[in-house]
Design a protein around this nucleic acid. Structure first.
Length: 300
DNA sequence: AGCGAGCCCTGCGCGC
DNA sequence: TGCGCGCAGGGCTCGC
């Protein structure tokens, strides 16, 4: 589930159900899903029970739900590679690997169960303190407050964030000697991009994944950022149709991939632009998919 | 400072 | 059918 568009679908789906709702109870079935919860801050279940949740916020792939009251805290969720957050009627038997359940009561919708399902347990939930943003601007999508969880403080803004600073990003690229794909995946530089959308944006911008970041021309860098935004927005628009106002119905394998991908997972198939077969190479212990004709490595 | 390796995990599909 | 292997959309820490 895990890149920006998918996490945003979850955030938007949670919003009407959890905003203003009270946590009635918490069940943790898998303690490893709390790996990123600091026990010194208190017991996860205790910190949540009885608290009222505010509007969910997202920055990059991190999602958090601020809690009313002081000190300011939030439930932080990261989906990792396989996490899902699902809204269920109380009593629903979860088919997937249920790790954490929140019992909540919304003033309009009544009681609901919030299920954190995660096969690989790379994802996590935590209750974390909120701290001021470095730039004083709103912390992410879903809030006007310049407050974010401590464990998200080092994460850069994402390219769809109105406070994302293009000039700072271009300047950082110009200093980076590393491969451009590594830079795109560096969440402290720009957040929300994962392996799929990195490959898609690089394909659209006709840039080889191993092109050193500091060799991109200004024009090429602008094109790349524009394509990153385009692919994220396109995926968001397509993913945004799979939930309704009451229930998040998140399906990790939903529609987008099958018909909109140009490079990711398309190895052996013709490049939609020039017909040359897409190649898959190992990079950073992951697959990188690219067109060897459109995306040439240019070393100067 | 920046980078690669290793690690955290489970389950699926594939080839033998 | 069974088994071993490689694969999976992420991110943190460690050592060089």
């Amino acid at each position: 589930m895990p890149e920006l568009p998918e996490v945003e679908v979850v955030r938007a789906g949670l919003e009407p159900a959890v905003t203003g709702a009270t946590v009635l109870g918490v069940e943790v079935f898998e303690p490893r899903s709390l790996r990123r919860h600091d026990p010194l801050a208190g017991v996860f279940e205790t910190l949540l029970t009885g608290r009222v949740m505010q509007r969910p916020v997202r920055r990059g792939k991190f999602l958090w739900i601020p809690l009313e009251g002081t000190p300011r805290r939030a439930i932080v969720a990261h989906l990792g590679m396989s996490g899902q957050i699902l809204l269920r009627e109380p009593g629903t038997v979860e088919a997937g690997l249920l790790r954490i359940r929140l019992h909540i009561e919304h003033p309009l919708h009544g009681e609901l169960w919030v299920h954190f399902v995660d096969q690989r347990i790379f994802g996590s939930m935590a209750v974390d303190a909120l701290v001021p943003t470095a730039d004083g601007a709103a912390a992410g999508l879903g809030t006007d407050e310049p407050l974010l969880p401590t464990q998200v403080a080092h994460i850069a803004r994402d390219p769809l964030d109105p406070a994302f600073d293009d000039a700072v990003f271009f300047a950082a690229l110009a200093r980076k000697k590393t491969d451009i794909k590594r830079a795109l995946l560096d969440q402290t530089l720009v957040s929300g991009i994962g392996n799929i959308y990195a490959d898609e944006a690089l394909w659209a911008a006709r840039i080889h994944y191993a092109q050193p970041a500091n060799t991109l021309s200004r024009v090429k860098a602008r094109t790349l950022l524009a394509e990153v935004r385009h692919v994220l927005e396109k995926a968001l628009a397509e993913g945004g149709t799979s939930f309704d106002a009451q229930y998040v119905n998140v399906n990790g394998a939903s529609g987008y991939f099958s018909h909109s991908l140009n490079a990711y997972g398309q190895q052996g198939k013709p490049c939609p632009r020039c017909g040359t077969p897409i190649v898959r190479e190992q990079f950073m212990n992951r697959g990188s998919h690219f067109c060897p004709r459109c995306q040439r490595l240019r070393l100067r």
